[in-house]
Nucleic acid binder design. Structure first.
Lengths: 365, 365
DNA sequence: GTCGCTGCTGGTAGCGCTGTCAACGTTCCT
DNA sequence: AGGAACGTTGACAGCGCTACCAGCAGCGAC
């Protein structure tokens, strides 16, 4: 003996065990797998722990068990509304579980991501959530060698490292352009900022749709590497307009840009949708509140986060999903900004969904 | 011996020490306080660590040293733009330091905050950042008993637990109303949502300013506990207008509401600023991009986060600031939505700052 | 009655690192 | 020259928990 109730009066597992009249290891089991105890001991340990206000020491647990109960999350931006919704989903789903979230910001740099990945992996996380499908070769190798479940989010594509939840940005963009064609628009401009891989894929979808219709024109595309903003939306649109005054629609790579375009039109007295139709991407809350209301492609951001975390936790606990790739789809929410003539009553008429909406698995490993 | 290079081939400190030809404890010191080593050993350990790709085991370190290198952060919302800016500041300032951020969401509940606080404190964090000054008595007691530096952010007030960074929401609201008075407005409405303590203080500031001018009227105030949104801004403004059609200005508790008011005015063909002036709060990016541009109270959110994290880290490392309370101030950014007659060229004329802007300490413990 | 088998419990031995303190060599002072 | 003072280093003993394996009942099967 010689050591009991050491400094700082912290309650240790041993104290709980002593009070409950069991061995420390039995008390330990109570916290990890209560089912394994007899009912009698279980209640004894439980009340002892409560009485002493015992809180397990996670560092000791991690050291002894050689693993942590941390889920690492790598996202490219903390400012972008899109990620705050995803994050909220992740935090909500992890709450109540034993796992805690460790967040890091890659700032849209895959090199930074690689660095952070190395850091995370060294601490043996219980699981990992990474953004997108564009990792460096090195990152990819580390992820594949990792001993924990991995979830890639925001996007789906071929060759998942492990699990994947997202939707096709390419298809979503195509659907948005198809909607504009439906409305009789032909000269559709593209406005994009930041141009991360997902925005690039939206541009690809736009380009393919335009080409298929024989309407592609490189000059209709205005992009910049600058981070997105409402102000930038206005500026890029002004550029586009200066170059191609005869456009009849603009597809914006995100909603901030779309709002910027809306304001720029107002500034120039361009009628929406009569002269120019606007379609955004993500369907942030303000899109339904603006004047005119703005059409956008709704993405299931919160669900992406919460489902990703929930599935990851299941996988950590041994229950691997039958389908590792989950397509959460998207919906083109048609609003005033893109409706050529007055349509039926509902401002949300015509929702577009992918063929097999909820579980359309696009690729298997 | 008998145990070297154990399972999983992980490099331990002992291996590094062996390769460097020093004792483990010396190698340990290299990572915590390199200055304490002779230059010769320092370089030896350094190259040995690099050669082996050594990564310290944080769990073991935490267990042995009885403290962690984790900074806990408690914020009320992950969705609110305001907090994402603050968070970005916190993450940026912690990057490069040895400390990692552990984030939790209180969802605007001080009971939830108390629960999370208990959880955090049990893991002996290196420091803690909490939002606001309205904690439960129990939380307050725990914070005061904590053995680590504590930073309260977003707001300043009397009796800091330890350190505090923020600004006076009361004064900021008063400044906004003063600006409207300057512009000749008298019937100033207030539109607020969520009504957390900081919004409440803005309302108090509004009320005080109105009373001082003899213009206070309870019916000018429209609030709700519902979470804020652009749509809600329009709805609340509609309520206000129905009740008090003769208002000539609206002070919105945040920018989303202000944008909603702007759109509602557009919907009703109310001229801004001729018929109604609008002032928001926070000065989010879109306020400068809208048509008309929207006046707002700029708050230094990113700086609040980065300064808080930087000061906290300093304090953790023993360098306590000479002034524990830091007022980061605010600025009324005057734009078209509140300017009665055409003013001087600069659209940002008339910036208002608190008397001693950068370090006006309002209260000392 | 013996042999497994299962279900529960406990002992032992670390997990990888750091706090403490003693020991050492060197320098500087008297 | 002797000793104090300093800077640098290492031995030892855990930090609080869990992995591993052994032990011990209680049970049914043969």
């Amino acid at each position: 003996m010689g050591r009991k109730r050491t400094k700082s009066g912290k309650i240790r597992l041993a104290e709980v065990a002593e009070l409950a009249g069991v061995s420390p290891i039995t008390a330990s089991r109570f916290f990890r797998n209560p089912e394994a105890l007899s009912v009698a001991k279980r209640t004894r340990v439980e009340s002892a722990a409560r009485e002493l206000g015992y809180v397990p020491n996670l560092a000791a647990r991690a050291l002894a068990s050689q693993r942590t109960e941390v889920i690492g999350v790598l996202i490219p931006s903390l400012t972008n509304n899109v990620f705050s919704d995803v994050l909220r989903g992740i935090y909500d789903a992890s709450e109540g579980s034993r796992y805690s979230i460790q967040l890091s910001n890659t700032r849209y740099s895959i090199l930074q991501e690689e660095k952070l990945l190395r850091l995370f992996l060294a601490q043996k996380p219980a699981g990992l959530i990474v953004t997108g499908i564009d990792q460096t070769t090195e990152s990819r190798a580390m992820l594949e060698a990792a001993e924990c479940p991995i979830m890639q989010i925001m996007e789906i594509g071929p060759n998942p490292v492990d699990m994947m939840i997202g939707f096709s940005h390419y298809d979503a963009a195509r659907a948005a352009i198809a909607h504009l064609f439906d409305q009789g628009r032909h000269r559709v401009g593209f406005v994009g900022a930041r141009m991360d891989p997902r925005v690039q894929r939206r541009l690809d979808g736009y380009g393919a749709a335009m080409k298929d219709a024989g309407l592609f024109d490189q000059r209709l595309i205005v992009t910049t590497a600058t981070p997105t903003s409402v102000t930038l939306g206005g500026a890029l649109f002004a550029d586009l307009l200066a170059r191609e005054p005869d456009i009849d629609a603009v597809f914006c790579a995100n909603d901030d840009l779309a709002l910027g375009v809306l304001f720029e039109c107002r500034r120039r007295d361009i009628a929406i949708p009569d002269q120019i139709a606007i379609v955004g991407f993500n369907d942030l809350e303000f899109m339904a509140a603006s004047v005119p209301t703005l059409t956008s492609v709704r993405t299931n951001r919160y669900e992406m986060g919460s489902t990703a975390a929930a599935m990851l936790i299941e996988a950590i606990e041994g229950k691997r999903p039958e389908r590792p790739v989950l397509d959460l789809g998207f919906t083109v929410i048609e609003r005033q900004s893109s409706q050529t003539q007055r349509q039926a009553a509902s401002p949300r008429a015509g929702e577009w969904m992918p063929a097999a909406q909820n579980d359309s698995v696009t690729n298997e490993p």
